[in-house]
Amino acid sequence: MDIIIEGIKQAVALLFNLDHEVLTITWLSLKVSGTATLISLFIGISCGMTVALTEFPGRRLVISLINTGMGLPPVVVGLFVTVFLWRNGPFGFLEILYTPTAMVIAQAIIATPIVTGISLAAVQHLPKNLRLQILSLGATRLQMVWILAKEARLPLLAAVMAGFGGVISEVGASIMVGGNIKGYSRVLTTATVMETGKGNFDIAMALGIIPLLLSFLINSLLTYIQQREHPR
């Protein structure tokens, strides 16, 4: 029990004293996970909408694959990304293993199926006739996609939250491809693992509480945007 109270106290102290190292770590976490989420939004929403709006052979298989991808274990992604980025691996020439860039790539791979799956479901759940109606009003295909996206914006925001929540809390891939290098690729989750390993449970707890707070703040903001309009 002591350790829990101590952890919360430490978290508050670390945040309010604006401890330089904690701020750096927190900022990097936001930067890496934010960039990864943005990338996954581009790929995920476009793929999700494409699959939702087109008919092609093997479509069901593709959807099953996307849905499977939503549960992609981060460590597995980490392992694959590591092997691909090894100096002597196929993408070794990029020399980005153990950099924040590698972490962004791994996290984007984790978040993309989540965003794809949710946007796919979001667009599929729009009334079928809406599409016909929009087209019959003379909209081009691109305009139709834009209007549908706007119609589905509430679940699409949910996709943003799920994607971001998935990657900011992820540790397995980040530690493998980032290496938890001090002042460079150390993020909140990897620092938590390391402090636990060192037996500094109070600091580990404190570092664990920060992403919770961050997630809460960001999700509150998104929820505010999402719920600002009257629910239909």
């Binding site: 930067k31 934010g34 943005l38 020399e95 980005i96 153990y98 962004v104």
Partner: peptide, 24 residues
């Protein structure tokens, strides 16, 4: 705009130091 900023900002701050400077 945010994306553009992120990309520019990301590209500069993630750029790895010269090859021989990194030591694993």
């Amino acid at each position: 705009l945010a994306v553009a900023l992120m990309v520019v900002f990301g590209a500069t701050s993630y750029a790895a130091a010269p090859e021989q400077k990194n030591l694993i």
